[in-house]
Design a protein around this nucleic acid. Structure first.
Ligand SMILES: [Zn+2]
Ligand SMILES: [Zn+2]
Ligand SMILES: [Zn+2]
Ligand SMILES: [Zn+2]
Lengths: 152, 152
DNA sequence: ATAATAAGTGAAAGTCTTTTTCATTTAGCG
DNA sequence: CGCTAAATGAAAAAGACTTTCACTTATTAT
């Protein structure tokens, strides 16, 4: 499902949230980019023009998340937690460990794995995250070393 | 590969680090548990007896990580970043979204997936993380609700 | 339109976790 | 021993996020 700017406003209204200039601005910024953004990144794109406070960014992101319109992503490599708008479909990320480039992967085909794990553990499996790490073509070309190490 | 207490000390020595009582204590605590621990958890197990400071825990974990003897794990759900000693083998985690129980999964069988993605993207894939989220048997029994939502 | 009101905003203070600084201690080594 | 560089602890600082509270504004009901 694809959410447009209008869809998002409608959904917010439907859930009883008010449509403020700040929220409009934040949604438009997120609408304008395909990639993940930290609250601070959003802030830096909005700051000069409209004087929105960082607190409001945090609160709006929280609101949008509660409304199911965006979701969070925390990289395995650390404390940098990104936010992005809800993706068109289930997908995963492939990250270059040298330059940080993030590429989306569709089609994971993990249904059988989930089934097997469910049988083994008794868990009802609701979702999964799969992230791959490697070296992107560009970094391979430039022969830059990977920082990669086995994850736990 | 399995690291024992002795192995770890030897490796630290080999890399020119000093063996202090604090480091011994921290390594022993980590050696004594199979599961992930936050710096604070380690601290709370050590505090009363030997009076090790939390700062030292952070620094020792950093050192052990640099020496490749432990590694980090940041849950998808947030800021809680766990640390654990190097696992015996490649494995993944299954987390109960209700109670937080973490179970290890061996055998992911993602080699074909990696191969396909590599072909599609040109990346040289070095590693991957796979985490599953669901409801554990206990929480299913107690009919406790999952907080689960599709990840991004 | 206007007024009422509940929600939203911004500034500042407060948390919480992690890092840095710096004076003091100690492990490792001759 | 005694030296020296590394490690430690206390306190301060940093960074990311949350809370508080007085003020403003979007919605709604008149
Ligand atoms: Zn790259
Ligand atoms: Zn998937
Ligand atoms: Zn559970
Ligand atoms: Zn795997």
């Amino acid at each position: 499902m694809v959410y447009s700017y209008k869809d998002i406003l409608a959904e917010l209204r439907r859930e009883g949230y008010k449509i403020t200039p700040q929220r409009r601005a934040i949604i438009q910024i997120m609408e304008a980019t395909e990639s993940h953004m930290t609250p601070l990144e959003i802030y830096s794109r909005t700051n000069s023009s409209s004087g929105i406070s960082l607190v409001t960014i945090y609160r709006t992101l929280d609101t949008l998340e509660k409304a199911g319109l965006i979701c969070q992503f925390n990289t395995q490599s650390g404390h940098t937690s990104y936010l992005l708008r809800r993706p068109r479909s289930h997908h995963h990320h492939l990250v270059c460990s040298v330059c940080g480039l993030v590429v989306n992967i569709g089609e994971c085909g993990l249904e059988e794995v989930e089934e097997r794990v469910s049988k083994d553990t008794g868990f009802k499996i609701v979702s999964h995250t799969l992230d791959m790490s490697g070296v992107c073509p560009e970094c391979q070309k430039n022969n830059r070393q990977t920082l990669g190490r086995d994850f736990c």
